[in-house]
Design a protein around this nucleic acid. Structure first.
Lengths: 219, 219
DNA sequence: CCTTTCAGTGAACATCTGTACACCGACAAC
DNA sequence: GTTGTCGGTGTACAGATGTTCACTGAAAGG
């Protein structure tokens, strides 16, 4: 089939397009209110389809939520990838005790949160307020992120002084701070306040890093 | 007026009692789903009153939420009071670098979260998923807690090595970890998993404390 | 070309939603 | 003891909700 490039869409393409429209509409509609307070009809109206057409794509708001979890964590993994790339480029831990890695990571965080406000906001909200299955899915994804980060940290600390357990403990703390910072950034629109949030988390991570550099795991 | 002690309630007492019933019913109904997904009629049914009677006590679910914010933060302040009492009793920072204070604080946290699951869960959920006014109220209260904790920390660190700003930065980090830990405890029912959560946060705070003991504020 | 598939339609349903209104009856105040 | 205050009731209504069912019409496939 010749790619005419313009208007004529195949049936599959068209279906994918309305599916996207549903996902986007949902993200927009629940910027403040959570999935559990969202009705199928609101979504349908926003998309511009009749309520029953919704069922052609998802069989409930809940399964829609699960799809959004996957999508949102793609964005979060993008962030992780950026941070990792950043850290490898700055592979000079002797100077300024990792300050550059911290600063770079925070910059990446701010950047990604701004670019995908919807996804990060979705995770932050539904993590505690969504339907149970959605909450569970998010917690599972976050644990995956922690594990992933832990293996990255192993390369930087050396396994002689850090047990696997302690690496996961540290990684978990980083993720906690990351999530909290994202939440704070999302809850403000004033640039000067955001500046302060960033400055605060920068100092927090530096305090923590002092401890990290001196930590010796007990076997 | 003679206090008969038993059945006969004054009008004011009776009103307060249904008000309490409304607050309790709301806390119970939104253990999983958030205020924004809660209807006035559900609350009324749970309390055992007719929907319109709700308006005799609150003029919207939102203002009900604000009342619950106050109440929930009373519980959180109870926790803070316990932690403070604990820390003062263990005023022997030379030994084991504050491990006892950390352990005691975590124990108090776990204890209070268990006792007031409803309040802590409410804060955790509505903090990100509630109506805007509720979210704002919670954030304001949390900032108050951070300031309060910062002044407590000032007594333990000495203002010669710590600026007020850095104290608030540290206090903010503690509150972040506290909130995250409470969320984790609330999201599990298995005791062995809770044990692990506690062990993790204990290690995290010890790592952090190493950094804190060596921190010198830049002016 | 003829048939099948299937995203989207539209009407209909039983149920739930917030809120308005008139009302009751026991406690409180004078 | 009369009067007023005020929690709580009951009815009512317009609108929103999830889900059902039979349908259309255009693309896909033989």
């Amino acid at each position: 089939m010749i790619d005419t490039g313009a208007e004529p869409e195949s049936r599959a393409e068209r279906k994918l397009r309305t599916r996207r429209a549903i996902l986007d509409a949902t993200l927009e509609l629940c910027t403040d209110s959570s999935l559990t307070a969202l009705s199928l009809r609101q979504v349908a109206k926003q998309v511009g389809i009749v309520p029953t057409a919704f069922y052609r794509h998802f069989d409930s708001i809940e399964s829609l939520g699960l799809a959004l979890v996957e999508e949102s964590f793609d964005s979060l993994r993008d962030l992780f990838r950026d941070v990792r790339r950043n850290a490898q480029a700055d592979q000079d831990p002797s100077t300024s005790s990792g300050h550059r890695i911290v600063d770079g990571s925070i910059d990446a965080l701010v950047d990604h949160v701004h670019r995908r406000r919807d996804h990060f906001g979705f995770i932050a909200r539904e993590r505690v307020a969504g339907p149970r299955s959605v909450r569970d899915a998010i917690r599972r994804e976050i644990e995956l992120c922690e594990r992933e980060l832990a293996t990255d940290l192993a390369l930087m600390t050396g396994t002689d002084t850090w047990t696997a357990k302690d690496l996961h403990v540290l990684s978990s703390l980083f993720v906690t701070v990351l999530v909290a910072t994202a939440e704070q950034i999302l809850s403000t629109t004033r640039p000067e306040q955001e500046e302060q949030i960033v400055a605060t988390v920068r100092t927090q991570l530096r305090m923590l890093l002092i401890g990290v550099y001196q930590w010796r795991s007990e076997p």
